[in-house]
Amino acid sequence: MLIPFREAVRESLFSCLLASCRATEPESRYSRHDHEEPLRALLSSGDDRLAPPPHRTFHTFLLAELRLAWLMLAPHLPRAAPRARCAGAS
């Protein structure tokens, strides 16, 4: 769950932060592979101003990305078998 979550957060944050670069230079691409340090700095800041629209707080942004990661993984998870009911349970 952590990997899809981090990928979703990374993509959302960097695409939002780099949108003005793409507006100026449509062919520009972010290809830095060493994104861990800047990503950690962004996450550690918790600054609500960094929350991509439509999120108003960094907390709600992270919750939405966590939900997205869950939705991406859920179809691939095994379904739990129904539990047998105990005798005498109502």
Rank of each mutant, 00 (worst) to 15 (best):
L73P: 04
F58E: 03
L50Y: 01
S15F: 01
L39M: 10
P53M: 07
P26H: 09
R67W: 05
T60F: 03
H76F: 08
F5Y: 09
R32F: 09
L68F: 04
E36T: 08
P38H: 08
E25Q: 14
M72W: 04
L62Q: 08
E7H: 07
H76A: 08
R79A: 13
E65Y: 00
L66D: 06
A74Q: 14
L63I: 06
A51T: 10
A51N: 05
S90N: 14
I3H: 06
E27R: 03
A51L: 10
R79S: 11
Y30D: 14
F14A: 09
Y30M: 15
M72N: 14
L73K: 05
S15T: 15
A87R: 07
P75F: 06
H33E: 15
F58D: 02
P78F: 08
R85D: 10
P53G: 03
A87T: 12
M72H: 09
Y30N: 15
P78E: 09
E65F: 00
A41N: 05
D34K: 04
L62R: 02
S45F: 01
P52Q: 08
R6A: 09
C16P: 00
A19S: 15
A89Y: 07
L62A: 01
L71S: 13
A81C: 07
I3D: 14
F5R: 07
L62C: 11
H55N: 14
R79D: 06
L39K: 04
L50M: 13
P78S: 07
F58N: 01
S31N: 13
R67A: 14
L63A: 09
D48I: 09
I3W: 02
R40H: 02
P38Y: 05
P52D: 09
A69L: 14
R83C: 07
S15R: 09
A41P: 00
L42W: 02
S12H: 03
A64W: 00
G46Q: 06
C16A: 13
S20P: 06
H33V: 14
L39V: 09
L2V: 08
L17G: 07
M1H: 01
E11Q: 04
P26S: 07
G88Q: 06
